[in-house]
Amino acid sequence: MAWLPMANQWRILRKISKEQVFSVPRLEASQGLRQEKLQKLRDYIHECSVNHQLVDVGEAAFITALNLMSATLFSVDCAQFDSDSTQELKETIRAMTKVVASFNLVDFFPIFKSVDPQRVMHKSKTYFGQIYSILEGKINERLKLRAASSDYVEKNDFLEALLNYSQSNPSEFPKDRIKHLLLDLFVGGTDTTAATVEWVMTDLIRCPKVMLKARNELWDVVGRNNKIKESDISRLPYLQSVIKETFRFHPTGPLLIPHKAEVDTEINGYIIPKDSQIFVNIWAIGRDSSIWPNPESFDPERFLRREIDIRGQDFDLIPFGSGKRICPGFPLATRMVPLMVATMIHNFDWKPEKGMKPEEVDISEKFGVALQKAVPLKAFPVKV
C-alpha cells in the first residue's frame, strides 16, 4: 500500500484498513487485547527484575508489538519472550526492511537488472518469501476452517474481515491480494512501533531525571498500583511530550515513504518535474536549529512550552507523514507507544549495563525504512 500510486487500488486498501482495523469502534473493541499483551510485557519485566536479568528492550518491545498485530490480524500470538524462533522472525523482518531501503545500482542502471550485481532482488525475494509463507499459512488455515463446517463461527479479526470482503467483492479485491495487505500491516505495525519504544527508553535511561518525572506523573494520574488504561493517555502530558521529543530526535521513518510529483510543481523557486521521486527528510527537520532551540539536546519540556500536533498539521513534526498518505496505522501507534513506555517505567526504574553511566548509553543510528539503534539497548529493570 505504501508504494502504490493514489489510484483505485490504493483507495480500496486504505478504505479497508481504516474501516476494519484502525477505526475508533474497532480500536475501542480491541482494548482488552492490548491490555493482555501489555500484561505479558509487565510480567516479563517483573520476572527479569526479580532475577536481576538484563532485558533487551528492543526485543521485548518487538515481541509485544508483534503479538498485538498477529492477534489483531489472525487471533493468535506469533512470538514468545526468550524464544529462538522469535529472534529469527525479528531478524527476517529487520533484514527485509533493510534491503527495501538499501541503495540498488539497478535503479540507476536498469541494464544490470538481469545480473542483480548487489543481489538486492535475490535478498528481497528470500525475505519477502519467508514472510509470505507465514501469511499464506494463516490464510489457508482459515479457509480450511471456513469450508470444513456449515456452522463455522467467524472470528473477530482482520483476516476474517478481509476474506468476507474479498468474497463479496472478488473483482475489486481478489484473494491473492490479501497477503500483500497483511504484509504491510504485519511488518509496518511491528518494526516501527518496536523501534520507537526502544528509542524512547534509550532517551529515558540516558536522562534519569526525565524518567523520574514521567514516572511521578504516572503515579499522580494513574496511581502506583493501578493498571494504565488507554483513557489515561490524554491525562499524561509529560509522557506525551517525552514521546514527541523522541519523534523529533529519532524519527522512526527518517525519510517517510517516497512520494511522487503528479505534475510539474514550483516550490521556493525550484521546479520539481512531474514523476520525480521525493523524499522528505524529517530527521534533518527535527535537528534544524532555526526551528528547534538546542536541537541536539533531549528536552521533552519544549513540547510543554509549545503546542504542536503530530497528526500531520504542524510540518515541524510529522513522524507519520501528512495529508492523504499519512500512515494509516497512526491511530493504533499513538495508543500503543505511550502504553508500552508507560508499562515499562510505571513500576520499574532502569539501569544501564554494569560499568556504564547513563550518559554513556549508545545513541548511534542505523539507517533503514525504520531508524534502528546501531547497538541494541540492554538494561536492568529495578522494581520501585
Rank of each mutant, 00 (worst) to 15 (best):
264 D>L: 08
153 V>W: 11
14 R>C: 02
244 K>E: 00
235 R>K: 15
169 N>H: 13
123 K>F: 09
150 S>C: 10
209 K>A: 14
152 Y>K: 06
162 L>Y: 02
119 R>E: 02
349 D>R: 12
227 K>G: 06
84 D>S: 14
341 V>N: 01
193 T>Y: 08
123 K>Y: 09
334 T>Y: 08
119 R>I: 04
327 C>K: 01
353 E>S: 13
153 V>G: 08
353 E>P: 06
261 A>W: 08
172 E>R: 14
67 N>V: 04
308 I>Y: 05
252 T>R: 02
216 N>G: 12
209 K>P: 08
381 P>W: 07
273 P>H: 04
19 E>Q: 11
150 S>Y: 13
4 L>Q: 09
128 F>P: 01
138 K>F: 08
230 E>K: 14
88 E>W: 11
323 G>Q: 01
356 M>W: 05
96 M>H: 10
147 A>P: 14
307 E>M: 04
195 A>L: 05
277 Q>I: 13
267 I>K: 08
169 N>C: 07
242 V>Q: 00
245 E>A: 04
289 S>L: 02
287 R>L: 00
286 G>F: 01
376 P>K: 14
157 D>F: 15
358 P>N: 11
287 R>Q: 00
146 R>S: 01
229 K>Y: 15
200 V>C: 13
120 V>Y: 00
98 K>L: 09
89 L>F: 12
216 N>F: 12
102 S>P: 02
229 K>I: 12
358 P>I: 06
20 Q>R: 13
155 K>M: 04
142 R>E: 04
14 R>S: 07
283 W>G: 01
374 A>E: 01
345 I>D: 03
130 Q>R: 15
121 M>A: 04
378 K>E: 03
311 R>H: 08
307 E>K: 11
305 R>L: 02
52 H>S: 10
168 S>K: 15
203 D>L: 10
229 K>H: 15
381 P>N: 06
368 G>M: 00
178 I>N: 01
